[in-house]
């Protein structure tokens, strides 16, 4: 609780502020959209927080979103693959990408930043290649598959929980159990803190690091799939652009240190929600031009990180 109290307070304040300045903010439709967007970005953020806990970074998330988001409709509509096969293929490719990152980082000893930066360029490039840079989507077909992202669990007549939000809760629960209750979670925190000491205690540090990249890419793939099912249209040149940065920002807001060794799932999900409320606020407030979005998001992130650092310093004394 202590670890994510700050970000929780931030979320509540922003939420109240936005509900005052934005007329339609509290409408059922807007709340559903907010939950759905939080869920989509939250899944990416949970993924990257595994990597950040080990002291690494994954910059290729947005490109994996693009690869899966364009690749799945491409396989289904242009190559007539059964949807199930296409989805399985997408997850297998994402896991291979994670394994490949892990291999390069732990065995070839390359820096995570460099490895995943190359990934960022390559996976988008590959997607633009095989789709010939053409917009991908399902058109009016496969609406039953799209229910996965567009469906909702109706609670009242107007308001329903979006399916992606339910998926976020499930993925979040698994991630929480993994990090807090299993041996592997403990190993991740230990090696993120001090990899050499962890290795000397008999932990397979290389395997654990690789596992974190596999989890990250897999959740990026899930995110990518949900994004395309929801939006139904993806341009290979910009689908998923900057999503890794939203994910990393949410993880950092949620208490992950880029030095490794710390982070909580609940904090990260709240971090993702803060980002979405902010975006929502910019869109709803007339006096804020929406092209100032990055300025505001960046500024809030910076303030949050500074506040966090100051609080930590005070606690240390």
């Amino acid at each position: 609780m202590k670890k994510f109290l700050g970000i929780l307070v931030t979320l509540v304040l922003l939420y109240i502020l936005t509900s005052i300045i934005g007329d339609n903010f509290l409408s059922a439709y807007n709340q559903e959209q907010l939950l759905k967007r939080t869920a989509l970005y939250g899944l990416l953020a949970i993924g990257v927080s595994f990597v950040i806990i080990t002291g690494g970074i994954d910059l290729s998330i947005g490109s994996v979103v693009c690869l899966v988001g364009c690749g799945v409709p491409w396989l289904i509509t242009q190559h007539q693959w059964p949807p199930v096969m296409a989805v399985i293929a997408a997850f297998l490719v994402a896991m291979m990408i994670g394994l490949w990152h892990g291999f390069l980082i732990t065995k070839v000893k390359l820096q995570p930043f460099v490895v995943t930066l190359c990934g960022l360029l390559m996976y988008r490039g590959a997607t633009r290649g095989f789709t010939e840079d053409k917009t991908q989507g399902f058109g009016i077909t496969h609406s039953e598959l799209r229910e996965l992202a567009t469906g909702k669990l109706q609670l009242t007549e107007q308001f329903g929980l979006p399916v992606p939000f339910l998926l976020l809760l499930i993925a979040g629960a698994f991630a929480w159990i993994f990090l807090n209750k299993t041996v592997w979670g403990r190993y991740l925190f230990a090696l993120g803190n001090n990899e050499e000491a962890a290795r000397l205690s008999g932990i397979h540090t290389d395997r654990m690091v690789t596992l974190s990249y596999v989890i990250c890419s897999s959740l990026a793939a899930l995110g990518g799939l949900l994004f395309i099912l929801d939006g139904n249209s993806a341009q290979p040149s910009d689908f998923g652009n900057f999503y890794e940065l939203y994910a990393i920002a949410a993880a950092v807001l949620g208490g992950c240190s880029l030095r490794g060794g710390s982070g909580t799932v609940i904090g990260v999900v709240i971090g993702a929600a803060v980002m979405q409320v902010l975006k929502n606020m910019i869109n709803l407030a007339d006096w804020l031009k929406s092209h100032l979005e990055f300025l505001v998001v960046g500024g809030v992130l910076l303030v949050a990180v500074i506040a966090d650092e100051l609080v930590k310093r005070r606690v240390r004394k």
Binding site: F189, A190, N193, N194, E196, A197, A198, L200, G261, S262
Partner: peptide, 8 residues
């Protein structure tokens, strides 16, 4: 550096 995980 090698024996402890200081933040655990």
């Amino acid at each position: 550096a090698k024996g402890l995980i200081l933040d655990l």
